[in-house]
Design a protein around this nucleic acid. Structure first.
Lengths: 348, 348
DNA sequence: ACGCCGTCTGTCAGCGCTGTCAAGACTGCG
DNA sequence: CGCAGTCTTGACAGCGCTGACAGACGGCGT
């Protein structure tokens, strides 16, 4: 004998219950729920009161069966980093909740042969049609996926797009500017000899971070060449890069590792070479990922609003009504430096 | 002018198309799809041929609207560790794909006040009714959730349950046995003085790992007391535990950190104290998480089949038909030792 | 021969909602 | 005062599928 025993349906109010209670037609309830125009204030109030009274929640299955929307947005990823993916996911999830949407998740191995990728894409598009997709790196820059979506008129937003940036909606941060911030931070602490652990050659963000760092340094008047070593955005790569950097004749006093994983590896190399971080060398990472606080000393790093990027991308997919923004708008989100323990003043 | 232009629906075959093509009734197609009994081989073959020919995929929304199933299973988590959660999620996802199910994800903050938790649960149960849930730690052992689900007759499976283990379906590993394996591994390498970094006091698995380690050591004939320090399953805690362990008068030569994060912290303490891992001290972790390969030396650790646990739990929720197994069956999955670089023979 | 039961197949009414269409209530204007 | 145009509301037919039910058929016992 529960509160809802007056309802035919097993405990769940339906739109019909709401309509009856409010004394209006089914369609009017539907209009209120979908925020359609041309609904009088009075009617809206009545319906909303009835909805609240009955604790009514529209049935997604029925809505998508009857209407043209599916109330699902898909998150496509192919990222080995669980931290990154989880954060994006949390953001997308939050956006979905706000709009009564569901989130679907699909992993795609973008390194597989084109034919296989095609099949996988077709399966995703067919099995559960979504109202839109959020693309995360490296899928963000996969032309095959982009072309397929554009050809089929599928709605999507890109997280951290690199190539062809204004091809579609996307969310980015200003990597070059962030790297410049690191450069100036080092400089202000008195550092004058610099090193950088670069990322994968074909990775757009990695490229922009390097450029930004180098250019800021040049603007600061640094003439001594910056030592470079490739870390491939990986822990192991960071170790190897560290070995090179640390044994250089004129050793840098400050090294910018372009992501946290390689920064962690770099620090290991320092330890092994008997160099104390940050006393002898300052190390700055990028991402503020989980690993930044799983190393010692805790990593000074650039915070990237990854969850916010997921959120923003999802909103771009969701906000269909908003025709004011062009379909290819790029949104730039703020970053900031997280000062922890791996960076300090230059040694005397 | 695409391949499917003969279909009324926009490119997607419906059950009606299949029925017409196979020359059978709608209901017969439905029977084949749902693997209902009393379907002749001949009819099944015809229908399956038509399904294949039309590339037909049943519409989930329609199925759940018409039938009693929703084709959604929910994954409830409240775990700060993205690694763990991602792995569980991958397993659940795989199980869902196999059965044409969707996966829903909901984060619940189990530390919030009971009233709030109740509200959150009600919202989840109401907003998108699921056919069942997978509960991950620490939700697994949350009595309020368990009670609510049992009272409402909601189907669920528990990942790594601790208390009240045979209250419902669940997937576990034998933590005590795994810890024993570590103990014997140390022993076989000649270690005779041991330490352990324990986990949170109220954490069942942490407790069992400690017990298993201690008991195996006792069985091996170790009489010297095992040094203990609490690491709370965290990096920072591992550092602190390491400080204690490392400065002990009769320093252990082998330390079992009951999870990888605390093992990473422990190793940091070793470095800082001028102790080389594994030359001076062998360190073994537990979980084989991401961090195990983000430290140097790479961590020897116990692999826990986390993704498999998610998969198995999801299967328990999905396999409704299988009445052969009791509703409270526990499934125990295998683990194994991953030998990397942080454990070696005892120093002379 | 008959009825009974078990197997196989089909008919049909919705599930809860939205899109379409149309009607009623206004408004402004000639 | 009448008419077109706009705003507001409602009636109704499905969306694609499943559950309940009924009919057809063959083998069995009596």
């Amino acid at each position: 004998m529960n509160t809802y025993s007056h309802l035919k349906n097993g405990g769940h109010a339906t739109m019909e219950d709401v309509a009856r209670k409010a004394g209006v037609s089914l369609k009017s309830v539907s209009r209120v729920i979908n925020r359609e125009p041309h609904v009088s204030e009075k009617l809206r109030a009545k319906v909303e009161a009835a909805i609240a009274a009955l604790d009514y929640v529209p049935d997604t299955a029925a809505r998508s069966l009857a209407g043209s929307r599916t109330f699902i947005i898909g998150l496509l990823f192919d990222n080995p980093s669980p931290n990154y993916t989880m954060k994006i996911q949390a953001g997308v999830y939050r956006a979905c909740m706000e709009q009564q949407y569901h989130m679907r998740i699909d992993q795609i191995d973008s390194s597989c042969p084109p034919a296989e990728l095609d099949a996988k894409l077709a399966a995703i598009l067919r099995n559960s049609r979504c109202d839109g997709f959020v693309l995360t790196p490296p899928l963000t820059d996969n032309l095959q996926i982009l072309d397929t979506f554009d050809r089929l008129g599928v709605r999507y937003a890109r997280v951290a797009p690199d190539i062809d940036r204004d091809r579609a909606r996307g969310v980015i941060i200003d990597d070059a500017e962030a790297a410049g911030l690191v450069a100036r931070h080092f400089w202000n602490l008195g550092h004058r000899r610099f090193g950088i652990v670069t990322g994968p050659a074909d990775h757009g963000a990695a490229h922009r971070r390097r450029e930004g760092f180098l250019q800021a340094l040049a603007e600061l008047g640094v003439t001594e060449p910056v030592l470079e070593a490739s870390g491939g955005f990986a822990f192991q790569g960071g170790i190897q890069a560290g070995v090179q950097l640390v044994s250089a004749p004129r050793r840098p006093t400050a090294i910018f590792a372009t992501n946290d994983d390689s920064a962690a590896g770099l620090m290991v190399s320092c330890w092994r070479a008997g160099i104390t971080v940050p006393r002898d060398i300052s190390v700055c990472g990028f991402d503020d990922s989980w690993v930044a606080q799983s190393v010692w000393p805790y990593l000074t790093t650039v915070y990237q609003p990854i969850e916010e990027m997921g959120y923003a991308a999802a909103r771009m997919v969701l906000d269909r009504g908003d025709t004011s923004a062009p379909a290819s708008a790029l949104q730039t989100l703020p970053f900031h430096l997280v000062e922890r323990d791996s960076v300090t003043v230059a040694p005397a």
